[in-house]
């Protein structure tokens, strides 16, 4: 039995290697995620009474995503300069952000960002299953080998943010 199961495992492993080699060209997940986030922001509209200066996308904790987003730093967005800005997660720090990206595994930070967005136009982007339940307006996920995103239109409206029809069309799911 032991020997048999060992062979089964080895066969499965070889099969998965074979499948991997047959797979198509792939791109680094973090880079694609960074690009998706930057592009998403182009399809969201902020009201007039927002902070002046750079367009700040705040990130809870720096990490691989913060590094990947640096490729977009300085690019134009809504007539401003795009600046990815890692923060520690404090409520004060969120005041200067246009949008905040909370990576998976930090539900408390997500809830806090969601609460901030009840008083001012802050786009909250989350990740993984259940992110829209915890305060995210846009939630990124991997489905199969591709990136998808869900939009909570009701939460966007409550934060006085607008979503373009293209954003809603590309979303996997739109909840009101």
């Amino acid at each position: 039995m032991s020997r048999f199961s060992r062979w089964v495992v080895a066969a499965l492993f070889l099969l998965s290697i074979h499948c991997a080699e047959a797979a198509q060209d792939v791109a680094d997940e973090v880079r694609v995620k960074a690009a998706v986030i930057y592009n998403l922001l182009l399809f969201v509209d902020w009201p007039g009474d927002v902070p002046t200066g750079d367009f700040r996308l705040c990130l809870i904790e720096g990490g691989a995503l913060a590094v990947a987003l640096q490729d977009f730093a300085g690019k134009p967005i809504h007539g401003r300069r795009f600046v990815p800005h890692p923060i520690g997660g404090g409520a004060d720090e969120l005041q200067s952000c246009f949008a905040v990206m909370v990576e998976a595994g930090n539900p408390v930070a997500l809830a806090r960002a969601g609460a901030t967005a009840r008083n001012r136009p802050l786009l909250v982007i989350g990740e993984g299953t259940g992110a829209t339940d915890r305060g995210a307006m846009v939630s990124l996920a991997a489905q199969g080998s591709r990136m998808v995103f869900d939009v909570d239109l009701g939460a966007l409206r409550r934060a006085h943010l607008g979503a373009s029809s293209k954003l809603l069309r590309l979303a996997r799911r739109v909840v009101e």
Binding site: D28, E29, F72, S145, M147, L170
Partner: peptide
């Protein structure tokens, strides 16, 4: 060619990005 580089990815539109096959550790 064989894989997407950072510059290629950064030039894609949102529509095309959603069609890129991704590989990564976060899954």
């Amino acid at each position: 060619g064989s894989a997407w580089s950072a510059e290629d990815v950064s030039r894609l539109s949102l529509e095309d990005l959603l069609k890129v096959d991704v590989a990564g550790a976060s899954g």
